[in-house]
Design a protein around this nucleic acid. Structure first.
Lengths: 229, 229
DNA sequence: AGTTCTAATTATCAATAGATTAATTAAGCT
DNA sequence: AGCTTAATTAATCTATTGATAATTAGAACT
């Protein structure tokens, strides 16, 4: 093994890259924003050199703001997940003065813009495949803030009985069918690039209508269903 | 740049790895089977060394049977996709002497075993995220062999009118809702490790029942829907 | 038991990519 | 104008990993 002599060339005058000097917090935000786009497309195979190039900065600069690629990606995921729920939605979904159909249509119109978007879906799936624990947290949140409230609304819609007891997993799965079908739609669109020439508005409304029509007849049956393996 | 002299150490006696000598075709199959499992878990970031270790062979041996990792993975994907449709299903789905509900229940029971399995779902998503064109082919097949036949069955179920003309994308999306909700269920289970304590059989039946109940009321409306952007 | 064929192994190569370091440069505030 | 420090330049380390060349040995055949 040859002895390693650290020899560093002293540059005299070299062509300089145009340089923008930013406040650290600002630069950090910029990097994060770029990283979200980049990792949404490339996933874990994304390269720090390529990311820095897209950002118009040098690669070592990334390490001034983030100790490692791993940490950077983790922050990206966290942002994606935290940004995925608007606080107003809680009130909207539980507002029984609005017909459930209208609540759901309004909610999903917005949800498709924010969360069932290209960036979000891709990061979400990358994160799931990689086995980060983040998706669990997200699923739990969806259950608490979307699934369960809709279950309660369905109970109110389909039955006068006030004493159902705790929400069962069977009820939850009933509602997951609706949510899942939209998730699948977004996945087809953004992961598999499946194009359909439909009026999205109409599709959304019809899906929800159809779901609710079915629920009126079938949701009450879940009242007496015993959960077993 | 120092001249590179290819110097190879001549081993005299070295501890040998136990070696099994197999017929090429047999070894090939073995590698492929292992690769399916391996790449289903790890995706494109899977390493040839780790794969070979799992297989109990040395890494260079992979290259005796496959010219590159890329080619090996492509074969894996092709097998996964080709294996995902049983020929009997075509006849089953179009067999109008069986009630549609029963056809669908039977179909999805089997489909969940073969295609909405852990291995399949993961490879399918890896493939989609990586942007291989394979998913398109698969989606097209699903449309032809599942979506469209179900559309025709729904027409027969919900209306006496025999002159609907060609199937519209709105009708297809109506059916995709059902298929998509099952896809999403499998994704939740195998990608996000979401556990639910439900009776799967009952879940499947209820979902299909609910879908058909809704369809009876709402599918006929698609007859006159004009598709627009 | 030796010969031969070739499956499988051992030993590397070469390229990539995460991460670090030191010196230098220049943006923009006071 | 001077100072602070963000950012670049440039070089490099190190580990990983896809891929190849050279060597060894299993078993079928004579």
């Amino acid at each position: 093994m040859p002895p390693k002599v650290a020899k560093r060339k002293i540059s005299k005058k070299t062509p300089q890259k145009s340089r923008v000097r930013m406040a650290p917090s600002q630069r950090r935000e910029l990097i994060l924003a770029g990283a979200i786009d980049y990792f949404a497309e490339l996933g874990f195979t994304g390269k720090t050199r390529e990311l820095s190039e897209r950002l118009g900065i040098t690669q070592p600069l990334l390490y001034r703001y983030f100790p490692s690629k791993q940490v950077l990606m983790e922050e990206v995921f966290e942002i994606i997940f935290l940004d995925s729920w608007q606080k107003e939605w809680d009130a909207l979904l539980e507002n029984s003065s609005i017909p459930l159909k209208k609540r759901l249509v309004t909610f999903y119109q917005q949800y498709f813009e924010d969360s069932f978007s290209r960036r979000w879906i891709r990061v979400y799936l990358y994160s799931g495949l990689a086995g980060t624990g983040m998706n669990q947290k997200y699923l739990k949140m969806i259950r608490q803030r979307l699934i369960d409230p809709v279950c309660m609304a369905l109970r109110a819609l389909c039955s006068d009985d006030k004493n159902w007891g705790p929400i069962s997993d069977d009820e939850r799965e009933f509602v997951w069918v609706l949510h899942g079908s939209f998730f699948a739609y977004a996945t087809r669109k953004y992961i598999f690039n499946h194009e359909t020439k439909i009026n999205f508005e109409g599709y959304l409304t019809r899906s929800i209508e159809n779901f609710l029509d079915g629920a009126k007849a079938n949701y009450p049956k879940l009242r007496s269903v015993k959960t077993s393996s």
